[in-house]
Amino acid sequence: MNEALILQHVETYKKNILMQLQQSTLQKYTGIPVVDEDRLFFTILPFLNEEDWDNSVEVSAIAVSLIFSALAAHDLVKEENATAKSQQLQVLAGDYYSGRYYQLLASENKIDLIQLLSNSVAIITEHKSRFYDLEDYTLEELIQSIQLIECKPIERFLEYYAYHEYVYIMNEALLLAALKKELVAFENNEKTFYISKSKIFQSNMDTLRLEIEKIELTLVQDVRSSDLLNESLKDAILERVSNHSLENQLREG
C-alpha cells in the first residue's frame, strides 16, 4: 500500500464516519463533527498494514471514531455561558454521536466491545476531570492522563481484535501529537486544553519539552527498526510524526 492509497483510505473512512453522524440541525448550528485524522490513521493502522480486516472490524473502527467525535463535541462546550443555540446544540451533538456509536455496535451484536469501549469513555471522563479538580497530580500522572484521554478506546479496539503489536506505536504517537499540539499552542499564546489548566505543566515546561523529545526519538527509532510495519506505512507514520515536529509547528505558528 503506497502513500497515496493510505491517504485515500483515511479519507474514505472519514467520509463513512461523517455519514454516520449526519444530522441536519446539528450540522447547521455546530458544523461538521470533529474527526481527528491522526487518531483515525492510528485506529486503522493494522488495515493500512494489510492485516486481516473484515466488515465487522471496519464497523468497530468507525464506532471508535464516533466516540472521539462525541467527546470532542463536549470539549467545545464553554465552561461558562453556553446559552447560545450553537452551544446548546453542541451539548446534544456529543450525546447524539455517543448514541450513534452504541447503536452501530448494537446492530452488529458487539456487546462485549460495547462494554470495553463504554468503560474506556468512563476512564476518559475521569482523567479529563483531573484537570478540573483540586487534587495534586505529578507531571507524570498528568501525561499518563493525556495518553489515556487520547488513546484508550483505540487501545481497547486494537486489543479486542488482537492487533496487540500496534498498541505501543499508536499510544506513543498520539501522546506525542497531543503534547506537541499543546506546547505549540501554549507558546503561541493560543487556547490549550491541558496546559492552561495545570500549574504543574506551566512550571515544568522544560521537563515537558525534554519528555516530548524523548518520546519522539524513541518512537522514530522503533518505527524505523520495526519488522511489523511495511515500508510505506513506516514513511507515513514518520511523516505524521515529523508534521508534528515542534520546530515546524512553531515556525508555522
Binding site: G94, S118, A122
Partner: peptide
C-alpha cells in the same frame, strides 16, 4: 458547564457499561 458535560458523559458511559 464542562464538569457537567463530563459528569453526564461518565453517567452515560457507566449506564451502557452496566447494561452490557
Amino acid at each position: 458547564n464542562r464538569v457537567a458535560m463530563y459528569t453526564g458523559d461518565f453517567l452515560f458511559a457507566r449506564a451502557i457499561e452496566y447494561i452490557t
